[in-house]
């Protein structure tokens, strides 16, 4: 018996590998989880798209649960996401702030004028510095930030219906209470 067991080792190793490969099929290798989740959101101030002389300051957001949605006019996936954001703004009380990433004000404004504004405010990050601090690597990305200013969740890529109803909405509700 012992003699036979030895020869089963390759098969067992192979089956373990298959288990991992199977699991791997349902993972997205492109999605890199953010190490910032569970950590304080990097503080920043940034000019507003509507009124560049005024500045948004993360410090003012203390005590509020809010979403930071990073987008740009040149980003195709953002345009796909736009209707979903509009819908979110309509059906929920979630405060969504937009960060216009590496964009020109005119082009960003044109997109908002054409497709509507789902944001409470839009901040501009023309040189992408804020984006780097938030670890943005592919727009659109959305951060859920709680009352203490801690990032609780990061959505990479467009917010899907599923992600919104199963993750973002329940999370925001829980954080608000």
């Amino acid at each position: 018996m012992k003699r036979t067991a030895k020869f089963l080792i390759p098969l067992v190793l192979f089956l373990i590998a298959v288990g991992f490969l199977f699991k791997g099929l349902f993972l997205d290798p492109h999605e890199v989880p953010s190490p910032l989740v569970g950590k304080p959101a990097p503080a920043f101030t940034a000019p507003l798209l509507s009124e560049p002389s005024k500045r948004f300051n993360t410090a003012d957001m203390k005590g509020k649960v809010w979403l930071l949605n990073v987008w740009a006019s040149w980003c195709v996936a953002c345009r796909e996401e736009h209707p979903a954001l509009m819908e979110m703004a309509k059906i929920s009380e979630i405060a969504t702030y937009g960060l216009d990433y590496k964009d020109t004000d005119a082009e960003a404004q044109a997109v908002i004028d054409a497709n509507g504004n789902p944001y409470k405010e839009i901040m501009t990050d023309a040189d992408g510095k804020i984006g780097i601090d938030y670890g943005v690597y592919g727009v659109p990305e959305t951060y859920v930030i709680d009352k203490l200013g801690i990032i609780r969740y990061k959505q990479i890529g467009p917010i899907t219906e599923q992600a919104f109803f199963s993750k973002i909405l329940p999370l925001v509700k829980a954080l608000q209470t």
Binding site: P35, L36, I132, Y134, G135
Partner: peptide, 8 residues
Amino acid sequence: LVARYGDF
């Protein structure tokens, strides 16, 4: 960089 993007 690791603080922002992880060990990836």
